[in-house]
Design a protein around this nucleic acid. Structure first.
Lengths: 239, 239
DNA sequence: AACGTATTCATTGCATGCAATGCATGTCAA
DNA sequence: TTGACATGCATTGCATGCAATGAATACGTT
């Protein structure tokens, strides 16, 4: 069994452990493992065709990041309580505001290539198009891509990394939000406001728009009924 | 050799891997390993009296957190370039401002125990006392304790975790800063302004004070001459 | 002497073995 | 039936073995 290699996507870093890590993250994001579901080293190892050692390493990392939590035996996929979601959105709003501010500042200083700004606009358009097709997965992808682009435009690798952590922890959010017509209608407008602020090199405006956008997203998340019980969730360990 | 247990400090979590992780972090913070120094699994394993497996796990986690970087063979203790420090301080300023805001908000809502606020004041006094003794290590400890207390008062575990990451990455900063007389003189005043804002339940004031404080700390860091070459640093791998 | 090439060897990365742990299940008594 | 208790078993956690890798060194060639 140990010769079978798993399909490791276009992730530059070598090593089975990292591949397992990426694979698990991907599965979480896809919702392939329900929150609360228990994960055993042996199972994952068999699934991915590696031994337990790299799996252990990957799980250790996920544990450190809070994507899985210690369970009775081994670990369980972390769920998101309402309170946790609230906290995450508060943090995210501040981080994304900072990202937008920094991007706008870089724009004002001429440190942003025109192509980068155009790419932001295109990303906004892509989200709009995806939302109109009502394809939840594609919309989430496009939305994440836009926010990632803004994060990159900020030019602060630590901020970018932190944002990634937060996004990963919130993950499927956007999928749920799309059912909300208010939200679906407002999202593009808010995106445009952020990009406009960046393009204008106006940090305050960009930051304000970004903060307002995430706060609105947080409210939409809260409204979405299925975010609380969380579809397909297995029984949740007490803590 | 495998029966010898290392002295694991008062860290609740079990497991050699975690103990190794904590031990390495501690050594980094102490400056026992110079930035740029190369670490091999076997060496660390021998040092701590465990096998390579838990060491691998710990190093993997440190790698994920950026505290060590991939080196020629294995990993090296991460150094901090001037640009990286700048980025970290920008992020830190925003995060600590948010923490102070949230703490003040909680205070305004009566969600903070009077004892918590008093503890903040005492922490400020402790920093002042430590700075006056010119004990760099104690000062750094006390300063970190204060900032940690503010982070805790914010009541947002994700923010707290993110702050910890940033602090760990900056680590020895305060030690260097204490040589700066301007900074040593201003630090207590700035600390008091933050705590005053929190006590008053004034998020805007607390946030502003915190942001200004960290920005000042960043400037002090930048001025400190020894932060650039970094004492005792072994040869630094190219990237 | 300088350069290119072969060789060595330290070191990683992964798999597997083995003991420790504690949950779950079954058994027995009340 | 219900409770306590013992036992089994799934599962983890760690150590170690072995092959792959590639940096450093030694060697040979011009």
């Amino acid at each position: 069994m140990y010769t079978r290699r798993m399909a490791v996507s276009s992730d530059s870093q070598p090593g089975s452990a990292h591949a397992v890590y990426v694979a698990l993250r991907h599965r979480f994001a896809e919702g392939r493992y329900a929150p609360g579901q228990r994960l055993t080293e042996a199972t994952v190892a068999a699934d991915l065709g590696v031994s337990r050692t790299p799996v252990r390493e990957a799980i250790g990392r996920l544990l450190a990041e809070g994507l899985v939590v210690p369970a009775a035996r081994g670990v369980a996929v972390a769920a998101l309580t309402a309170a946790e979601a609230e906290h995450l959105f508060v943090l995210r709003a501040t981080l994304e505001a900072l990202a937008a501010e920094l991007a706008a500042t870089r724009q004002a200083r001429g440190q942003l290539a025109p192509a980068d700004i155009d790419a932001l606009d295109q990303a906004v358009d892509a989200v709009e198009a995806a939302v109109q097709t009502h394809d939840a997965h594609a919309s989430a992808q496009a939305n994440l891509a836009l926010h990632r682009a803004i994060g990159a435009a900020a030019g602060n690798p630590f901020l970018e990394d932190t944002l990634h952590r937060v996004w990963d922890r919130i993950a499927v959010t956007t999928v749920a939000n799309l059912d909300d017509p208010h939200w679906a209608g407002a999202i593009t407008e808010q995106h445009r406001a952020i990009v406009a602020g960046i393009r204008a090199g106006d940090p305050a405006a960009a930051g304000r728009a970004a903060k307002a956008h995430i706060e609105a997203a947080g409210r939409a998340y809260k409204r979405a009924p299925e975010n609380e019980p969380r579809a397909g969730a297995a029984k949740q360990p007490t803590r």
